[in-house]
């Protein structure tokens, strides 16, 4: 049964990669990257169960935290062109 879960997540991962390659704007690619990260966590969990080594869940947790931070950092970079920006150039209160 874990084989079904693993293959489903792999198919979904492939579709997300298709979107990352085709995506017209940079935000499509960031969204696809974040989705790929989510699927990678699920893939780690299901492969860990399939091979009987649930210790992989620790790696999955770490990967989830890294995924959040990297997505936010990339978004901030594309929005401001810089990771340390002045608050004035934002133009919003």
């Amino acid at each position: 049964m874990f084989v079904l879960a693993t293959s489903a997540v792999l198919i979904a991962l492939t579709l997300a990669v298709v979107r990352a390659i085709r995506g017209p704007t940079v935000f499509d690619r960031v969204l696809a990257g974040n989705t790929i990260g989510t699927f990678a966590i699920l893939l780690l969990a299901s492969v860990g169960f399939m091979t009987g080594r649930p210790e992989w869940l620790d790696i999955a947790l770490t990967y989830g935290l890294l995924n959040l931070i990297s997505t936010l950092a990339v978004l901030k970079f594309f929005r401001h062109g810089d990771l340390a920006y002045d608050i004035e150039e934002d133009g919003e209160p």
């Binding site: 079904l4 879960a5 198919i11 979904a12 579709l15 997300a16 979107r19 499509d28 989705t35 699927f39």
Partner: peptide
């Protein structure tokens, strides 16, 4: 697990099919 696999694949198909960024989210 079977239902979860189905929904994961459906969501990924939606990411490919939808017309613009907001609907893909």
């Amino acid at each position: 697990i079977a239902a979860g696999s189905a929904f994961v694949v459906i969501g990924a198909v939606g990411v490919v099919r939808m017309p613009d960024v907001y609907t893909r989210m």
